[in-house]
Computed example of a mutant assay.
Amino acid sequence: MNLFDVVKFYSGQPQFRVKEAEVAPLYYLYSQVNLEDDLCQSDQQNLSKWVRTSDEINSLTSTGDILFSLISGQAVRVGRQHQGFFYTQNYVKLVVEPQIDSQFLVYLLNEHPDIRKQLKNSLQGSQVLKYSIQQLRSLVLPRIPNLSMQKIIGEIYFKQQKLRYLKQRCADAEQLIILEQLRKVSVL
C-alpha cells in the first residue's frame, strides 16, 4: 500500500503569486519555526513573516491539520496557536482516510526507518535538497496496525515529543540560573 492510498494531498500556494497590498487582510506565513513548535507542542507564540493581500488564499491552516514540510521532510499536526496561517508551496497538507490515525501518520512519516530511508533515497536537487509531492505520494507504507493500536502509538509519540521539549526547557532554565550565579561570583 502506498501513502496515496490512504491520504489526500493539498499543496500550499506559491507565495510569489500573491499580490501584496497595503490595506488588506493580514496572513502570517507558516514557517519551519512554527513546525518545530507544533511538533513539540510548544505553547510559545513565534510569529513569522506575514503578508497583506486581497488575493484569495486557499491554503490556510486549521488546528489538527497535518502538514509535511518539503524542505525538512518532517510532518506535524498544526497547533491551535497556528490556526489560520498561510502555508506556502513548501508545505503539503495531508488529509487522512478514516482507517489512519493522524497522530500515527505523523509518527510514521517522522520516525519509521523504512519511510525515512525512502525519503532520503529520493531527495531532489543538487544545491538545495527538496522533497517532492510525487515522492511523498509514492511512499510504500509498512504493515499498518489496527486503528486502536495506531491511536496508542500516536499518543505515546506526541507525549514523548512534549516531554522532550519540557525537559529541554528545564535544562535551558537551569543553565541560565547557573550562569547568572557564576556571573555574580566572578564579579566579586
Score class of each variant (00 low, 15 high):
residue 99 Q to N: 12
residue 158 F to I: 00
residue 158 F to M: 08
residue 76 V to T: 14
residue 68 F to K: 08
residue 156 I to N: 07
residue 179 L to H: 14
residue 162 K to N: 07
residue 120 K to R: 11
residue 3 L to R: 02
residue 6 V to D: 00
residue 76 V to H: 04
residue 48 S to I: 00
residue 8 K to F: 12
residue 63 T to L: 03
residue 74 Q to E: 15
residue 50 W to C: 02
residue 161 Q to G: 00
residue 126 S to P: 03
residue 101 D to N: 15
residue 161 Q to I: 05
residue 114 D to H: 07
residue 96 V to D: 01
residue 92 V to C: 13
residue 124 Q to E: 14
residue 69 S to D: 09
residue 110 N to D: 12
residue 163 L to F: 14
residue 63 T to R: 01
residue 47 L to S: 05
residue 49 K to W: 05
residue 42 S to C: 08
residue 102 S to Y: 06
residue 138 S to M: 09
residue 78 V to E: 01
residue 13 Q to P: 03
residue 51 V to M: 06
residue 94 L to M: 12
residue 54 S to Y: 05
residue 91 Y to P: 00
residue 34 N to D: 06
residue 95 V to T: 10
residue 184 K to T: 12
residue 20 E to F: 04
residue 146 N to C: 11
residue 67 L to V: 03
residue 33 V to D: 11
residue 61 T to N: 04
residue 79 G to M: 09
residue 22 E to G: 10
residue 185 V to G: 00
residue 125 G to Q: 10
residue 94 L to G: 05
residue 77 R to G: 06
residue 3 L to G: 04
residue 128 V to T: 12
residue 38 D to G: 05
residue 85 F to V: 01
residue 130 K to T: 10
residue 109 L to E: 06
residue 21 A to H: 06
residue 163 L to Q: 10
residue 163 L to P: 01
residue 135 Q to T: 10
residue 149 M to W: 08
residue 131 Y to C: 05
residue 106 V to A: 13
residue 54 S to V: 13
residue 175 Q to Y: 14
residue 86 F to K: 01
residue 71 I to Q: 14
residue 14 P to D: 07
residue 22 E to H: 08
residue 124 Q to W: 13
residue 168 Q to I: 02
residue 154 G to I: 11
residue 74 Q to T: 10
residue 50 W to M: 04
residue 11 S to D: 05
residue 110 N to T: 08
residue 174 E to Q: 10
residue 137 R to Q: 15
residue 86 F to R: 00
residue 146 N to D: 14
residue 50 W to P: 00
